[in-house]
Design a protein around this nucleic acid. Structure first.
Lengths: 186, 186
DNA sequence: AGATGGATAGAACGATCGGTCTATATCGAG
DNA sequence: CTCGATATAGACCGATCGTTCTATCCATCT
């Protein structure tokens, strides 16, 4: 039994996911096409161009699904669910292949404010904000929207700082602040 | 009386500072040379190439001097001096020209781990860590090194998150956490 | 005056960029 | 089988990349 090979569209997204993470969004299309084993024309057929591929990549990536998974694995208690995110961040940021948050990277690397990727990044982080807002609401936080912004700062700060100083274990530093935050709003 | 025009080296650094911030480190050398009004050859004479210019840019930038200035303007009290940094971050991140932290951007954009810029970014953030460590020591923090890591996460998180969601006012969110942190370690 | 060194201007290098093109192959539906 | 859509392979486009080159200008020093 042989698993059927994914179509060119899926192969392009997969290759672009891989290469843009390790080399940044400025990887050449040639490299993506080669790794995906896809014809040049198919890229423009499916995504209209490199910009479209990058945007589609960010949209398709199961970004907040991963956060939800980590939370669900931690049970029902909001306190546990939120701190589990930072435990996971410690694991992620210590991996030798860790190269930062792909959304933040894309947002910083693309200087053109009209690039379609910006909308995807915004949508992703807005989704995360909503996710943590509902969690803090369940926790009984008096200002869940503000608290969610604080958690997002901790997450982005962890992912950004770990690129330069992984040995500082920013995830552990952030986790302690998340605890303070939850304690103070109990 | 006419102020003498700075030499080619200074003009190159100034132009590169400007253009790499607005367009990222992938700006072409042509654009830098044009804005600096400097001959092509001079760039390679002074910096050996584009990589050398980028690294020199990051080294020469008065990065932590600016943090020190903000602190000194806030007086002697460590509490005030630390929180003043976040007040300044709120101002900086709300500017329409704000484009994130140039050090984090450079670190993320340059995928080659051997690029000389990485060492400069590391040196800069290590310097900041030392700055906040001494401040927290003066404050009487029981674990000033760990606390400094926490403050750096807050700063990097503010600068990273404000690129995508400036309306969330991450600096204010971070400031509140910095207060919690200082309270908890008093 | 003559020599020297730094700066300028700009042609030119090969490589690579994103994107368009033609031509051929494959495959499922009618 | 034929048709039409979709995929592949690869040449080709103009533009730009970082870098090296020659040639000229000019201020300074002997």
């Amino acid at each position: 039994m042989t698993t059927t090979r994914p179509g060119p569209r899926e192969r392009l997204l997969e290759a672009a996911r891989d290469l843009t993470y390790t080399h940044g969004v400025h990887v050449g299309v040639d490299a993506i096409l080669k790794q995906a084993e896809v014809a040049r024309r198919s890229l423009y057929q499916h995504f209209g161009g490199k910009d479209g591929l990058i945007a589609a990549l960010l949209r398709s990536y199961p970004g907040d699904a991963r956060y939800r998974q980590v939370m669900d694995d931690a049970g029902d208690d909001p306190w546990q669910r939120i701190l589990a995110v930072f435990d996971e961040l410690e694991v992620v940021t210590q991996r030798p292949t860790f190269r930062g948050c792909r959304y933040t990277s894309a947002d910083l690397a693309l200087s053109d404010p009209e690039h379609p990727a910006h909308a995807e990044v915004r949508a992703f982080k807005d989704g995360l904000h909503e996710l943590f807002t509902t969690e803090l609401t369940r926790y009984g936080h008096p200002a869940p929207g503000f608290g969610a912004n604080q958690l997002l700062v901790l997450i982005d700060g962890t992912l950004a700082h770990a690129v330069t100083r992984p040995d500082a274990h920013p995830a552990l530093a952030a986790r302690a602040m998340a605890e303070l935050l939850l304690d103070a709003s109990a």
